[in-house]
Simulated scan of single mutants.
Amino acid sequence: MPFFVLPFPIVDPVAVQLGPLPIRWYALAYVGGFVCAWMGMRLLVSDDALWAPGQPRPSQAGIDDLIVNTALGVIIGGRLGHVLFYDPAFYLSHPLEIFQTWKGGMAFHGGLIGAVIGMALFARSHGAPFLTVADICAAVSPIGLFFGRLANFIKPEMWGRETDVPWAMVFPPAGDAPRHPSQLYEAGLEGLALFALLWLVARAGGLKQPGLVTGLFGIGYGFARIFCEFFREPDPVQEALPHGLTMGMVLSLPLIVAGAAIVLFSLRRRSAPA
């Protein structure tokens, strides 16, 4: 037991009450993430210095359609991913609970699949290269992850394992034991650190090699998520697996493999003769 623990900053989960309609921090996190991502994508496609001469890419106007496609994919895929990956038996018995997203339950890996489908539909309808579209989205995705993890912290949910580190916190719904603020670890690694890496790569010419930023996102997120899972308390029913593994670890491994394959494809494609 540590000599002291940091007090958990209890925040009302409802940010604003508009009559009978509560506006929750969780919803604002999604809105803020999408707005910042939209601004970031428009900034990337408008800077000619980031692209090879004549390299096809979406227009600034096209980004408006792209953010709608990916937002719908993230929300629908994230919810269905939680239902199918983590607790299908419960939702099969309580199907109306599937639509009650305000109670929580969004899976990143499901949201990623939904976003990929949205990007593919956009690329097909606008005649844009899919890997280029994916690179633009990957470069700004950590912004949304950052806001989402902060929302997990405010709620609070997805807290960490018991610990005696000096920065441990007591999360009221989890009992009196001090725990890792693992949501903040994920916000820092999956959000800020990954965004800084991908943005630097993009600004250094990475967008001229279609697939490079996308592959680095897969590798970076996968390793960051697996690392943070060692500090996060898994749900004993939905997330805990044998041998100390968690569902988050298992779902992140294919992401690392796919990311590495896309990076290799991107680099080999660049070095091949025209």
Rank of each mutant, 00 (worst) to 15 (best):
P2C: 09
P2Q: 13
V11E: 02
V11L: 12
P13S: 08
V16H: 12
L18K: 13
L18A: 15
G19A: 12
Y30M: 07
F34E: 00
L44F: 11
S46E: 09
D48F: 02
Q55W: 11
R57S: 04
A61L: 09
I63K: 00
L66M: 14
L66S: 00
A71L: 07
L72Y: 00
G73R: 00
I75F: 04
I75C: 00
I75G: 00
I76Y: 03
H82Q: 06
F85C: 06
F90I: 04
L92W: 15
L92G: 15
H94E: 11
L96N: 08
E97R: 14
E97K: 15
T101R: 07
W102P: 06
G111D: 02
G114Y: 00
V116H: 02
A120K: 01
A120M: 09
L131C: 02
L131A: 10
D135C: 04
I136H: 04
I143N: 01
G144I: 08
L145N: 08
F147W: 13
P156D: 08
W159G: 06
G160E: 06
E162G: 08
A168I: 09
M169W: 04
P173C: 05
P173K: 11
A174G: 07
G175S: 06
P178H: 06
P178F: 06
R179F: 10
S182C: 14
Y185Q: 14
L189V: 14
L192I: 15
V201L: 13
A204C: 09
P210H: 11
L212M: 12
T214H: 04
F217G: 01
I219P: 03
G220M: 10
R232T: 10
D235P: 08
P242W: 08
L255A: 09
L255C: 07
S266P: 08
L267D: 07
R269G: 15
R270M: 11
S271M: 12
P273G: 11
